[in-house]
Design a protein around this nucleic acid. Sequence first.
DNA 1: TATGAATGAGATTTCATTCAT
DNA 2: CATGAATGAAATCTCATTCAT
Lengths: 205, 205, 205, 205
Amino acid sequence: MARTKSPTRRSDILLAARNAFNARGFAGARMADIAHEVGISKAALYHDFASKEALFEALTGELIDAMLPEAAPADFGEIPAPDLLRGLIAVMAQRLTSPEMAFVPRVIIGEGMNFPDLARSYHDRAIMRGLDTIERIIRHGIARGEFAVADPRQACRTVVGGVLFGAIWKVVFEPVGAEPLDPVTLAEVHADTVLNGLRVRSDGS
Amino acid sequence: MARTKSPTRRSDILLAARNAFNARGFAGARMADIAHEVGISKAALYHDFASKEALFEALTGELIDAMLPEAAPADFGEIPAPDLLRGLIAVMAQRLTSPEMAFVPRVIIGEGMNFPDLARSYHDRAIMRGLDTIERIIRHGIARGEFAVADPRQACRTVVGGVLFGAIWKVVFEPVGAEPLDPVTLAEVHADTVLNGLRVRSDGS
Amino acid sequence: MARTKSPTRRSDILLAARNAFNARGFAGARMADIAHEVGISKAALYHDFASKEALFEALTGELIDAMLPEAAPADFGEIPAPDLLRGLIAVMAQRLTSPEMAFVPRVIIGEGMNFPDLARSYHDRAIMRGLDTIERIIRHGIARGEFAVADPRQACRTVVGGVLFGAIWKVVFEPVGAEPLDPVTLAEVHADTVLNGLRVRSDGS
Amino acid sequence: MARTKSPTRRSDILLAARNAFNARGFAGARMADIAHEVGISKAALYHDFASKEALFEALTGELIDAMLPEAAPADFGEIPAPDLLRGLIAVMAQRLTSPEMAFVPRVIIGEGMNFPDLARSYHDRAIMRGLDTIERIIRHGIARGEFAVADPRQACRTVVGGVLFGAIWKVVFEPVGAEPLDPVTLAEVHADTVLNGLRVRSDGS
DNA sequence: TATGAATGAGATTTCATTCAT
DNA sequence: CATGAATGAAATCTCATTCAT
């Protein structure tokens, strides 16, 4: 067994942990397996992370950080709101459906009850931030005369929902045989639907 | 402690099981707690359900059954597609966010990896059925000249996504302090958005 | 393995626990060994005692209870104080040096720092009670003109000390080869010394 | 962290070890804590002491050495036995109740079963030596006509017991709230009691 | 049928101790 | 010499599940 700490040890552990938590959930994952996958002893694992919970929290914390949307600019200037929204949806879809990130919503939903801090942190830092950005884009569109929305705050949920559905689809249903989903197409169609709705438009847009 | 088998014992157990799985997840829930909550011994519990897994599957099976949409009519006749969709969204939102049902998506997402059959069954029986119904409504609308959609199959995900988001919000985030969500408003706004989109409509519909 | 709980199971466990704690100390004793000695599984042990600490505390609690001096009478009447003291010393010596009880002081001294409640309880219930009784006997003797003591409270410690020394001798030193000690002789000589002192008495008593 | 071996390193370690063993017992004390308190690495600790046991034995050995009474003179000459005894009791009480030394009896009693050599060594080197000295003083007193004792060997235990009681009181019971004990008073009263006994003396000594 | 008692098979965690640098 | 890193070998405790009454 290697006696010298590899420079990527911490990431190796976090990766193995992600796999384990992903495959079996928090309770089902075993520290022994994680250590074994990294190629170190259980005790070495505990040298880096004080407990299973600490490891779990470090992992989710890092992933949530990595997933956070860059702070949107304070002022969208002259950029058309539809373009902004299309772009945001594309980014969200790409992030949430990537294998590393798709782990996050699944875990929040699946383990949130046992880790209220985690759920709260995700709500405050990721969800609220995303909803706020969307709302600002919608209001930007209203100000520019591009959008007409009665309740911008609520409408955001429609935007997020479609992307979330895609993430869950990939993580939960594809592994059991559901038809694979292309994130790019998903994002485009979702953006179209959200922007134009289903109804025919007499203005031909 | 009830000594005589109550006629509702099976439901009592399922209810207690739902509470337990809901509160702690599959792995975290303890058979002893479930038995205790029902007021029977663990052995009696095992008399009715052969194992924790069997109990879990019976519970989710019943809930999925209860959640299934009534078979939609083969032909929607002359009913306007927007009305159909509005109605369906309202029903879905009400079901998925009701306390009994909100449990289901959470559990599928959280424990799906450990219960592939459950995930598959939910996918085949609930999700696909829901998506099919929505798709048929969309095609009905297209045929009636009410809807204009490039890819009806994909657009369905937008419809489902908004409702799913509401269910997850209630189950995962409200308990940790998120602003409560009114399912009726959610459904209405979501339906509006899905039908009309965000863009201004020059036709004034 | 016996499936039926023997009526003496609890005592069996406590006895095995006493042996184990006696032989290895609290930290060194192993629940597995205790269970094995009783002939039950570890889990069965945990069925009766929720934790190692609980077992330890139950054991010490019972032993301290069993060791407590009967409440001395409120009034010693016409009984000569020397007789009272001789009797008390004999009883204390017999109790403290019996195999079951000698365990107690040893454990209090050895584990007291880790179980402050235990030390406190022993101090309050056993030590103080013993000292009080001795003090009352001394004051009884002073009142009767039999004793002459400047500081009765402090003098009590001499009385207790000799007995304690005997208990520790038996438990700590005899097992490593010290000359065995006869408790009866110990008590008699100690009582003589305490009553008469070492100095010659011109009164010939 | 000191990088250079301080000239007092060995004593620093022994001091930290004493604190640790004192506070948590042998099993409870952790090498990591001791090293940390000294400000060196665990490996450095192992450089000076081959094992936890070795450290423990070195510590107790030094303390026992330091506690040993100076060899009493072979002949007490004309010194009155009561004075000799008074002096010895004072010295024993002062040593045994001093913070550094009080550790010793506690540890012998608490961990003796796991360290028979230690117990034996303490018995042979400290206890027996103390008892012998006391016995010689008593015989000296008998020879001088000052003492009248039937069984000098046994009576010694009364002398030691009172002092031991004080040491245990300080280490075990004072930390949990027992009334503090003044060693000088203890020694004086104990000496008085041992010399004169409780009974009234008609000779007025 | 219902139950209290019992258990087997782990899981996490701890720590004295050792190596490679 | 000193150290950070690593480990092996337990030990406590948990819980789904079964058995005898």
